[in-house]
Design a binder for these strands. Structure first.
Ligand SMILES: [Mn+2]
Ligand SMILES: [Mn+2]
Ligand SMILES: [Mn+2]
Ligand SMILES: [Mn+2]
Lengths: 217, 217
DNA sequence: AAATAAATTTAGACAAGCCTAAAAATATTT
DNA sequence: AAATATTTTTAGGCTTGTCTAAATTTATTT
């Protein structure tokens, strides 16, 4: 069984290594976990010992098959709990992440599977992130950040790539939710910001925000 | 904010000190938490520092007002989660305790209150234990252990004073549940065991079991 | 190809929680 | 009231996970 700290490291490496499972730098992990590089080196050595990561001095870290499985399972739990908090306990979408950070570490195979059943096997969490099934398989989703769309293109908001409360509350203020119809009116060359229509209503969006909104055409 | 270990110590002291809030011995705490007396002394000193317990060397430990409040709040969370697991996630009554031991440490005031609302403010957990409300007040309950009842007396099972799975599974086998009607047919002097009728069916029960079944007349 | 900068690791320290063994205090017998 | 037994505390040590400061390696400039 793994400790809470170990699980958080595995999750961070999973998040940072992306689809190609690239090696992740020590500093990147330190930043993600708001800790120091020296602490990361220490922990990586323990995870290497447990065969949960591949690590070569100065060359970065990647997950082993076993480490990957554990990380995906934690992501599964995190996202299922987020759905539970939103759908059953009436939390707002900007409130679920922090509590799920705690709940994801609860250890009980039965709990996860029964929760999944209770929630009717949701495929996406409140931020549009895909929920892996019990075999660790993710539902396929075809989306791209809003910033990659050209003027004139239309689509639907299917997700966000941040779950920071300030960001999510700002989206609420802009009346942007999962499912909102969006059309790019103009891309401002100067600062990469966008003029868009959200459900028919014209709004201006910074590039920083547009990077974190996921669109499906 | 308190650590997981601190919370478990407060809960243990609460459980052991009973209604009169008697001082609890170091050894009793050690046994309850399956740890060593020396570890208990260490922790008690920290809790004294934080003004969560009253402690005098060699004279035992009791909870302060603040310590008592925290302990009751953890008990509240534990029991609400037990209800959730049983009622919503279809756990058996012998399976809920261990998972609730983990869930009781999740920190989110909103989570507890919304869970309580979601469950429609239950007053008792799956073992018949009273659930304190958000002000820390327990519902009054009038029950006594089965072993205290004389031959001929009748009553209803309203609780158990152990949540150890082996004990609960044995009750399942005896077809004893909360709500079961029970009548004491005979008390065996020799070993304090009982002949009883459960929902009309005759059964023999050891004193050890009879101590842990709570009856309301 | 040096020199410099940035990233990473090592060395040594610290707090939390736990342990064993020994000492001290309290309780129980004789 | 001693002697003995039990309980509790103290002393010293270990692991986990963190930190700062210094050393080392790798990357980037000049
Ligand atoms: Mn999240
Ligand atoms: Mn999410
Ligand atoms: Mn319980
Ligand atoms: Mn219970």
């Amino acid at each position: 069984m793994n400790t809470l700290a170990e699980e958080n490291y595995l999750k961070a490496i999973f998040k940072l290594s992306g689809k190609q499972k690239e090696a992740v730098s020590t500093n990147a992990i330190a930043e993600e976990l708001e800790t120091k590089a020296s602490s990361v080196t220490d922990m990586i050595k323990k995870l290497t010992e447990k065969k949960l990561v591949n690590y070569q001095k100065y060359q970065g870290t990647s997950l082993t098959k076993k480490g990957h499985e554990i990380a995906v399972h934690i992501v599964r739990k995190h996202r299922l709990w987020e759905v539970f908090l939103l759908k059953k306990l009436k939390f707002q979408w900007d409130e679920v992440h922090d509590v799920a950070e705690q709940l994801e570490h609860i250890k009980s195979p039965k709990l996860v599977e029964h929760l999944d059943t209770f929630l009717c096997f949701p495929q996406y969490d409140p931020h549009g992130d895909p929920i892996p099934n019990k075999n660790g398989e993710f539902p396929k989703s075809f989306s791209a950040p809003l910033i990659d769309f050209a003027a004139g293109s239309k689509g639907k908001v299917v997700g966000v790539s941040q779950d920071n409360p300030a960001f999510l509350q700002y989206l609420d203020k802009l009346e942007i939710q999962l499912g909102s119809k969006i059309q790019v009116i103009e891309k401002i060359e100067f600062d990469q910001s966008l003029e868009v229509k959200i459900n028919g209503k014209a709004t201006h969006i910074s590039s920083e925000v547009a990077k974190n909104i996921l669109i499906k055409q």
